[in-house]
Structure formats: structure tokens, C-alpha cells
């Protein structure tokens, strides 16, 4: 199998202490989707910016289609497409003018630029809006145009940096289908995301990133096996009651239940069976939970399973992470289940 992207011990430090990437290595097989999964500030965007030649790494090396991203940057740029977490398109231009501009800057002829703009507008269902300035576009339309702009030069390797953060559910599904079609015709995709669901659906391999380190790598099945397919979530009135329930449910799953706030979270393999057993146990002990549910594991659950902490905790670091990198980034938000809220940008 050919490797379309190879990153070897990439290092990048911002300022004096913010270690965005600390010897990060991974490789992406041609024609597959590779997911970099992690919370804000994990270093995902920094990795993408290095691989797309925007940033120069402090240490390590990387190759895209065999071209070194530092020394053969021109060759790399000629074969990649990038769609950022901000729709980086010119809002004063129309959709067609944006695509035409990016085509021309990719050194395509006038005629093929115009033809390419037309076919991409059609494919992304933007034909009707194609001659309106982007100021009039909705967020979802802008994001579609951004992805279209990344595809003008028919890149063999496509970088999608949090392509669906802030998108409505339908736009998200449309984008996922587009990525699947791209991969079906042979494109290699590097995707960064905060959503386990997205990485699970699209990626053949996932690397979980945290404060500049890859803390786990594997197929979605392997990662999910490590934490259980479903999460049983029991809410109580206070944390003391939650701790009591955790003790009650301790023997049920392969892993110990975790108390998060007033909630008890337990990864289980067979959700329905576990729910029945848990309800029986609670009933026997006269415990009435304020909330009881089964849900898909979220990024938080992955982190909990891998590091023993959730993405929001800033103290109590697991071994192997870089404590000094913690200082600069507060504001990690807790995310669970399906992504619904717009995310704030991660630029470090």
C-alpha cells in the first residue's frame, strides 16, 4: 500500500512554551480517509497547516505524495486541496468568481477555470446562487463553496479541517456523502474533527490527539472496542448520589463506571441488556434517577476511556501529555452525543 501522507516526529512550538505538536507521527494510506480526532487546542489544525505547507515545522519531517512539505512545497501545493474550519472564501465575490479565482491561482486556463466553476457549482447545488456575492450565502452554502474551492484542481490529497463544525445536520450529512464519493474515486482525505461520530462514519483510521500527542490510533472498531459500543448514562440529584449509583453498577460492565458531575457514565457492549439490568438494580435499591439514557460514545467518552479524564478537565493529566501546553488554552467545552453547537475556532 502506498502512503499518501507521512508525518514523522513533527514538532511545533508557538511562543516559548505552547507545544502544539510534540513529535507527532502518522501515515495515511492513499485512497483512504484518516481522521485526526481531538478537542480544541489538541494540535490538529497545526498538523494540517504543516502538511499543507502553510507552516514550517520546528522539527521532524512530512511528505505528501512523496514530496517534502518544506523543501518541495511547490509540488505539494500543486497536488493538495484545503478546506479550513473557517470558510476561507472572499465574501465580496460571487460563488463563481471565487471558484474562478482559485482555479486561475491553480494555474488552470481561463476556459477550463470557467468550465470547472460551472460543474462544481452544479455538483454542490449552488448553481442558482452562483452569481450572487457570498455575503448572501448561508453558513452551510459558504462551507460547500469552500469545499468546492478546495476541489478545483482535482487534488489527489484533500485536507478537511473540521469541515462540519457549526453546520446544520443536513449539511453535515451532505458533506459526509461528498467525502465518501471523493474517496470512492481515489482521493486521499485527511480529516480533523471533534466529533467521534464523524470520524467513525468517514475514517478508516483514527488518531486521537491531545495536547500535541497522539494518544491512540486505530480503526474506528478498535477504538470503540476499547471503550464499549454504548454509554449508559444515569443522572442523579447530586454527586454523592451519583457515587452511590456508580458503586451499585460497578460490576456490570467491563470497565468501572465514571462519575462526571451528577452523572454516572458506564461504557457497555450491549446497551439494551445493560439498561434492563441497571434499572433492575436501581429499583431493587429504591434509587430513582433524574435521568436515564443510552447514547453513542462521544469524544469525551473516548478521552475518558483513554486518559481517565474528560476533555474539560485541566488538571490531573495522564502520563505522557505535556503539562506546560495546558496553560494557554482554557475553554475546552464538553461535547457529548451528536454535535449541535457551533464550535469556536482553534488556531493554535
Amino acid at each position: 500500500m502506498t502512503e499518501a501522507i507521512e508525518a514523522v516526529e513533527l514538532e511545533k512550538t508557538f511562543g516559548a512554551t505552547v507545544r502544539a505538536l510534540d513529535k507527532v507521527s502518522f501515515s495515511v494510506t492513499a485512497g483512504t480517509v484518516f481522521g485526526l480526532l481531538g478537542p480544541n487546542g489538541a494540535g490538529k489544525t497545526t498538523a494540517v497547516r504543516i502538511l499543507t505547507t502553510i507552516l514550517v515545522p520546528d522539527g521532524g519531517s512530512a511528505r505528501v505524495l512523496g514530496h517534502d512539505v518544506v523543501h518541495q512545497a511547490a509540488q505539494v501545493r500543486a497536488s493538495i486541496g484545503l478546506a479550513g474550519q473557517y470558510a476561507t472564501v472572499d465574501e465580496n465575490l460571487t460563488g463563481r468568481e471565487n471558484l474562478h479565482m482559485v482555479s486561475r491561482l491553480n494555474h488552470m486556463s481561463r476556459a477550463s477555470s470557467a468550465a470547472r466553476a460551472t460543474e462544481l457549482l452544479e455538483l454542490f447545488h449552488l448553481s442558482d446562487a452562483g452569481d450572487r456575492p457570498l455575503k448572501t450565502y448561508s453558513g452551510g452554502m459558504r462551507r460547500r463553496l469552500d469545499v468546492a474551492a478546495a476541489l478545483v484542481a482535482r487534488p489527489a490529497v484533500l485536507f478537511l479541517d473540521e469541515p462540519t463544525s457549526g453546520l446544520d445536520p443536513q449539511s453535515r450529512i451532505d458533506l459526509w456523502e461528498m467525502v465518501e464519493e471523493l474517496v470512492a474515486v481515489g482521493t486521499t482525505v485527511l480529516l480533523t474533527t471533534q466529533y467521534l461520530e464523524e470520524a467513525d462514519r468517514l475514517a478508516q483510521r483514527i488518531a486521537v490527539v491531545d495536547v500535541g500527542h497522539i494518544i491512540a490510533e486505530g480503526s474506528p472498531a478498535e477504538l470503540k472496542a476499547a471503550m464499549g459500543a454504548t454509554v449508559l448514562d444515569v443522572g442523579m440529584a447530586d454527586s454523592a448520589a451519583a457515587a452511590g449509583v456508580a458503586a451499585l453498577l460497578a460490576g456490570m460492565g467491563a470497565k468501572a463506571p465514571a462519575v462526571v458531575g451528577n452523572n454516572v457514565e458506564l461504557p457497555v457492549d450491549d446497551g439494551a441488556r445493560a439498561a434492563m439490568e441497571a434499572l433492575r438494580l436501581l429499583d431493587q435499591h429504591g434509587v430513582v434517577p433524574s435521568h436515564f439514557s443510552l447514547r453513542e460514545p462521544s469524544l469525551d467518552d473516548v478521552f475518558l476511556a483513554l486518559t481517565g479524564r474528560t476533555t474539560e478537565s485541566d488538571g490531573d493529566l495522564a502520563a505522557g501529555t505535556a503539562p506546560e501546553a495546558q496553560g494557554g488554552r482554557g475553554g475546552r467545552r464538553r461535547r457529548r452525543g451528536t454535535p449541535s453547537q457551533a464550535t469556536t475556532g482553534e488556531r493554535t
Binding site: L65, A74, Q75, A78, S79, R104, L105, H107, E119, L120, L123, L151, A153, R154, P155, A156, M178, E181, L182, A184, V185, G186, T187
Partner: peptide
């Protein structure tokens, strides 16, 4: 039709010095 629009294409190495001046002007 969709996959024809999406299909990737390996492109030749960047143009030689001569045409890069023309491309600079174009850019």
C-alpha cells in the same frame, strides 16, 4: 457524472522558470 467531476488527477510538476514569470503576472 458526479464522480467524473470529483475524480482526482495527478498533475505534472510545476512549470519551468520561463512560464513561471508568465504565471507570476497572471497571479
Amino acid at each position: 457524472a458526479d464522480s467524473a467531476v470529483l475524480a482526482p488527477e495527478l498533475r505534472a510538476a510545476p512549470a519551468s522558470e520561463d512560464s513561471s514569470l508568465a504565471w507570476l503576472v497572471s497571479d
